[in-house]
């Protein structure tokens, strides 16, 4: 929706904005790929603690993971509602997605502050540096997603979301789900495989 330049007929019969966005997601794969690679390469190389198993709170993060999965469900429901032209439910699901996103972010803020209290900062060791930069980058993506969702919600409130421009919601959804699948990887690689 930041880009409003698609023509209605295209060589491949695909929406230009969607195509650009899939290319963007492909690009993001390499961004997170590099960050995750850095995390894995430096795994177990910290000279001093705290180490992952000292500090990672699996039950807490499981709830966050569940929360993000549910937000993805809300997102697809929002898209389905917009495509049906059901603006009332679209508003509900959009704001629900955003709220779950905000809940996830609050969880991350809580997690970061408690880690700092327990003595893990960016500077402490390689685990701290790689962990905060990787999950922080993910958190920044979630933040952008929340702003985007709220913008769409406001548009919906103004009655400017219609089935005809459902693709704007679909693209936001692609972004949101991508951020979700990245979390699926982070949850496994960082939290569960210690």
């Amino acid at each position: 929706m930041t880009i409003a330049a698609a023509t209605h007929r295209t060589s491949m019969g695909l929406d230009s904005r969607k195509m650009a966005f899939w290319a963007f997601i492909g690009s993001e794969c390499l961004l997170f790929g590099s960050l995750i690679s850095t995390y894995l390469v430096y795994k177990g190389r910290s000279v001093v603690g705290p180490y992952p198993h000292d500090i990672l709170n699996i039950p807490f993060t499981s709830v966050s993971t569940f929360d993000l999965l549910m937000s993805s469900l809300m997102m697809v429901l929002a898209l389905a509602a917009v495509q049906r032209g059901d603006l009332k439910w679209a508003k509900v699901w959009l704001v629900a997605t955003a709220l779950l996103g905000i809940f996830f972010l609050s969880g991350q803020v809580y997690e970061f502050t408690s880690f700092v209290r327990e003595g893990l900062t960016l500077q402490t060791n390689l685990f701290g540096a790689t962990f905060f930069v990787l999950t922080g980058t993910h958190g920044a993506h979630v933040t952008v997603g929340v702003v985007w969702l709220l913008t769409l919600w406001v548009r919906a409130l103004q009655g400017q979301l219609t089935a005809a421009n459902a693709v704007t919601v679909e693209i936001c959804g692609l972004y949101w789900h991508f951020v979700d699948v990245i979390w699926i990887v982070i949850f496994t690689v960082v939290y569960l495989i210690q």
Partner: peptide, 26 residues
């Protein structure tokens, strides 16, 4: 959720190609 199963194969390529590159890099 991202509809790759139903959507154009080309999107699968746009996503899967870089994904595989990233995996190979890791």
């Amino acid at each position: 959720y991202m509809h790759l199963k139903m959507d154009s194969r080309f999107f699968t390529f746009l996503f899967g190609g870089p994904l595989l590159l990233g995996l190979g890099m890791t």
